[in-house]
Simulated assay, not measured.
Amino acid sequence: MSMHRKTITLTEQQDNWVKTQIESGHYGNDSEYIRDLIRRDQQAQERLTLLRNALIEGELSGEPKPLDMAAVRAAGRLRLKASS
């Protein structure tokens, strides 16, 4: 994977925060921290896309039906039993 150099500008408070994260041993340097933030943002965007797609699928699935909590509990017990 090729790397690209970027220049960013941080406030003093943000710079101190990044330095604190590095000094605490969570990251080796500024770049590691920024790359981790980007990875987390990408994952959050992917989860949001999945959620939006699930909501759209649900809306398109037809008229809602009453929730049968007894059936939900029974299905949960079956899943729990199957995973044991």
Rank of each mutant, 00 (worst) to 15 (best):
A54N: 04
E23P: 02
P64M: 02
S83A: 15
T20D: 14
I22R: 10
M3G: 12
S83H: 10
M3D: 12
D15M: 10
G62M: 04
E12Q: 11
D30P: 01
S84A: 11
G25S: 11
K65T: 13
M3P: 00
E57V: 01
T9S: 13
D30G: 02
Y27Q: 07
E23W: 08
R77I: 03
R79C: 02
S31D: 06
E32Q: 11
R35W: 04
Y33I: 03
V72I: 14
T9E: 10
T11R: 08
E57T: 05
E32S: 07
S31Y: 05
L48R: 02
E59C: 04
D36M: 12
L67G: 01
Y27K: 08
Y33M: 12
D30Q: 12
I22A: 06
D30S: 09
T7Y: 07
G28L: 08
N16T: 11
L51D: 01
T11H: 02
K65C: 05
D68L: 08
E63D: 15
K81D: 08
E12P: 13
A75I: 00
H26L: 04
Y33H: 13
S2N: 15
D15Q: 09
R77Q: 05
P66L: 01
I56S: 01
E12K: 13
Y33S: 02
R73T: 03
D15H: 15
A82E: 07
Q42G: 06
H4E: 13
A44H: 14
M1T: 12
L67S: 05
N29V: 04
L50K: 08
M3Q: 13
T11I: 02
M3S: 14
E23A: 15
G62K: 04
K19G: 06
R52H: 05
I56Q: 06
H4N: 12
S84M: 10
V18A: 15
T11W: 04
G25F: 13
N53Q: 15
A44Y: 14
P66H: 01
R35Y: 03
L50V: 03
K19M: 10
D68R: 07
V72E: 01
Q42K: 13
T49W: 00
G28M: 05
A71C: 04
T49E: 01
S61Y: 00
N53L: 09
G62F: 06
M69R: 08
P66A: 01
R47T: 09
T20W: 10
N53I: 02
E12S: 13
G28H: 07
T9V: 15
R52L: 03
Q42N: 10
